[in-house]
Nucleic acid binder design. Sequence first.
DNA 1: CGAGCCCTTGATGCATTTCAACGAATGTGG
DNA 2: CCACATTCGTTGAAATGCATCAAGGGCTCG
Lengths: 233, 233
Amino acid sequence: MSLDINKVAIKTSLASCFGSTMKDEEASAEFLDELANKAEEITVGSAEYLFREKDSSDYVYIPVSGSIMLERSTSTGSRQVFAFLFTGNLLGISETASYSFSAKTLTESTVIKIHQKIIRNVFDKHPTVAKRYQNVTNHILSLILDQLFVMGQKTAHQRIAHFLLDMEHRLGHGSSKFHLPMSRQDIADYLGMSLETSSRGFSKLKKDMLIHIESNYQITILDRDALFAYSES
Amino acid sequence: MSLDINKVAIKTSLASCFGSTMKDEEASAEFLDELANKAEEITVGSAEYLFREKDSSDYVYIPVSGSIMLERSTSTGSRQVFAFLFTGNLLGISETASYSFSAKTLTESTVIKIHQKIIRNVFDKHPTVAKRYQNVTNHILSLILDQLFVMGQKTAHQRIAHFLLDMEHRLGHGSSKFHLPMSRQDIADYLGMSLETSSRGFSKLKKDMLIHIESNYQITILDRDALFAYSES
DNA sequence: CGAGCCCTTGATGCATTTCAACGAATGTGG
DNA sequence: CCACATTCGTTGAAATGCATCAAGGGCTCG
């Protein structure tokens, strides 16, 4: 039955996100079953919103495939990108009534979608899971602190270098070649610079033989050590 | 007995930090007693470290009086200030083994200091408190996102304006006049700009009659609406 | 009253934004 | 299959904002 297969796939994804360090095997299996049975898996097209800022925060999302961008826009039209999410990241858990940013797909994406009530219910029944989740939140917090640090410290070109190393790590799967799912404008809004500056950053790194660019989104890191040294200097 | 009075004071502080929205009064009282009995209250001088980056994260701190700054420094000597903490803020809960920033006092400060183990113990016994604490973490997360947003969006002078409005809100206690506990350099490192630029920002806002400055640290906001409009423009 | 620290201000140069034009890639309809 | 429109990226030139260098002023504390 196709539904069952679906649930198994969801369970696998959930386990990699929530349960990877669970010691209590039984409780782990139980809560995974409960979540998987009530989770939906949905597929959305490219450049669509999973939710928008100030929507009531009813769901938690886990990307299974595709790429998602978290952003906030001002009334004047400018935009800050907070994060890029890929497979296995977690999105949307908060105790606040509404989201404080929008989530937009960069590519066609498949996500697992679970109602907040169900998550909380599981947390109440299995305190171990709630504790485990606390770790996830703390990890996200430390990632944002790192991002804040980068924003405050480095020059625009150094931030580009730092960004590319991060993307290689997250998208390269061990290879130095990877495909960026986001545009130069998205990168610029993530790193707090203009579109042109982000483009010039890429050009400079290419000219200096630190990276290779084919077809704009296909990037190869040629000299990781030198790129790292440049990003830190 | 002075010790008892001490514990009562600690309990009051803890309640304002943790328990203000607790519905379950009895459980609330019980966990407060447990925390207060095992908490220490310590006083440290100005410009001292409560802990440093990479120290093992053994304690949670709650400022009772004074001001504390969270910072991270690079090997090259530059510094990023992540946050300023005042009375009633919470500091240091994390599941990671070590702190990812240092905490330095700006003024002589009194803080409540509780061992992580005790906190976790309380969380295990009282899941309600753990949930309540999750809210605190989520709130911190949203504050850092706001800070990231500000860093990415605004010009240096606008960030100063925004900063002053935030400080008025947190330090003014309803008045438009307040005392800044941090130096121009601290502000610069918080907002990602040079000392000179932060100083020029103050001068500009003074020249434009948006704020009044006496004795460098004593600030009065003269036209809140105009300052807000400037910070958003 | 002097020393030291912090803050302010000016001058200069560099980094980044802005404005503008062009080029490459993609998609559409004839 | 080709013109055309559209979107996105690159590059140059000019303008601006910010950092850096440098000097001076004011406050505080011995």
